[in-house]
Amino acid sequence: MKVRFAGFGGQGIVLCGVVFGQAAMLDGKRSIQTQSYGSASRGGLTRSDVCIQADEIYDLLYEEIDVLVAMSQQSCDAFLPGLLPAGHLFYESDMVTPNAEWSGHSLGINATDLAFKQLGRKVVANMIMMGFVNGALGLVSHDALVATVKQKVPPGTGALNIEALGLGIDHARAARAT
């Protein structure tokens, strides 16, 4: 399972990949996280890939992905062509309009707006998105995801981040129900 988180620098994109990679490890799977690294990660197009599978991972560079999580229009435009037809697109619905040619599965969430209006901090939009993605696909176990987020976020922000994660999971549940 190859998952690409993409957006612009400052959205916490790299952290998304790191969290899923570490959570997969806690679940007993193999995982590798790689990322774009350069001036772009300070404001331009940025990506964080995580590959999760049961056996040895040899291929570290891939054009075809199973899941794309796009937090900006630029990143959606850049990486949607690599999403496999049976893949899943998740997008920040206030910032991204998926290319009309994409006919596969897609789910949008206004993560940044929700973060600001319901939790008072735009910065946790990535947590909402992570909860949303995992709520929909169950890439990693809930316990591993929560444990990893608690460990990775700055001291004193655990509760806020877990709340944001929960908000994303709730929205995935609601989306599934419809």
């Binding site: 790191v18 193999r30 995982s31 590798i32 996280q33 790689t34 990322q35 570290l60």
Partner: peptide, 10 residues
């Protein structure tokens, strides 16, 4: 190298 140096694994 830059790939091994920056990638994360268990």
């Amino acid at each position: 190298d830059g790939e091994v140096g920056h990638m994360r694994e268990k």
